[in-house]
């Protein structure tokens, strides 16, 4: 392991079944995660993913890095910056920022990728829930990006969900 090394993990797309399984396993049955109508009445335009589910993905990634490097995972912290929706893909990166003695520090960045639509020859051939339910907020418009795929031009919104740090101890 060396300073500057980057690890990446991709999870998802997160499904409603993933959310239900997390709610059952964690005991967090807040209706903003499970009940569409309730989530709409509180202004969320539909259910959102538990913050601790996608924070859990980071924990899993750090656990994997620790296991593969014969290390112990000792610290993980992060700020929840953005909401995650069903259908989003989660991209987590961990960059080694320092090695002191047997401790390795990481900077964590986690982004969500919300699919919006696919266009071919100027015609929209597929729309996703994010587009249909207008989930992209005004402040997130700068995160809208496109990429060419076999199906056509894919439009998505990329947004920061967690920024954090972690430390492992080499054994």
């Amino acid at each position: 392991m060396e300073v500057g090394q980057i690890f990446t993990q991709i999870d998802g797309p997160v499904t409603r079944d993933n959310i239900k399984a997390y709610a059952k396993a964690s005991g967090d049955r807040n209706p903003i995660h499970l009940d569409e109508e309730f989530a709409i009445t509180v202004g969320l335009k539909g259910v959102i993913v538990h913050g601790m589910l996608y924070f859990g993905y980071i924990s899993r990634m750090m656990g994997d890095i620790a296991s593969k490097n014969n290390a112990k995972f000792i610290n993980l912290g992060g700020e929840l910056r953005g909401m995650l929706r069903p259908g989003d893909t989660v991209i987590t990166t961990a960059k080694v920022t320092g090695i002191e003695g047997n401790q390795v520090s990481f900077e964590i960045t986690q982004n969500s990728k919300m699919p919006l639509k696919i266009e071919k020859d100027g015609t929209v051939i597929k729309t996703f829930e994010g587009e249909e339910k207008a989930w992209v907020k005004e402040k997130e418009l700068s995160g809208i990006k496109t990429e060419e795929t076999d199906e056509g031009t894919f439009t998505y919104r990329e947004w920061l969900t967690v920024i954090g740090h972690a430390k492992i101890e080499l054994l």
Binding site: M52, F55, I74, L76, G77, G78, L80
Partner: peptide, 11 residues
């Protein structure tokens, strides 16, 4: 109410 940040220390 927002759950804004979380830090675990297992040392």
């Amino acid at each position: 109410l927002l759950h804004a940040a979380q830090e675990y220390d297992f040392s």
